[in-house]
């Protein structure tokens, strides 16, 4: 992955910058140019909450190359307070003890890296709250 590709998403990955449609209130993460619900092109910049609940989750046991060293690991779809959903790795947990509906907190972590010599990719994960 090129550095530009990582760099341009830092506001979203580091701070959960998102958008709320001024037409209908739908929350988008990442932000968009046009709302798929009402067609509005006017958005308000918001930041998603760092608190949420697990809607569903899994434990990845066959990983892509970037995550070989931390397998098995949990991934969840999380609904954040005040709107917005993310797919994120669940860190600092016993994957066997996760549950749908469980409260989680968003944390800042290293997600992966471009090999041994390249840039490190930071972003959001969640941990049990």
């Amino acid at each position: 992955m090129t550095v530009a590709r990582i760099w341009r998403e830092r506001g979203r990955r580091y701070r959960l910058e998102a958008a709320r449609c001024k037409g209908c209130g739908k929350v988008f993460f990442p932000g968009r140019l046009v709302c798929d619900k009402c067609g509005s092109r006017e958005f308000e910049e918001i930041r998603l909450s760092d608190k949420g609940k697990i809607l569903t989750y899994t434990v990845i046991r066959v990983p892509p190359p970037a995550h070989t060293y931390e397998t098995p690991y949990a991934v969840a779809i999380v609904e954040l307070e005040g709107g917005g959903r993310i797919t994120a790795m669940v860190a600092d947990c016993d994957p066997e003890k996760l549950e749908i509906g469980q409260n989680v907190r968003v944390v800042f972590r290293k997600i992966s890296q471009d090999g041994e010599k390249g840039i490190k990719f930071y972003g959001y994960k969640v941990v049990p709250a």
Binding site: T56, T58, P63, P64, V75, I111, S112
Partner: peptide, 21 residues
Amino acid sequence: FEWEAFNGVTFPGLYAMMARR
């Protein structure tokens, strides 16, 4: 890719989350 796979989810992982739900 940017908002799912980047965060470690694999293809079986997505369907597994549908299954769990």
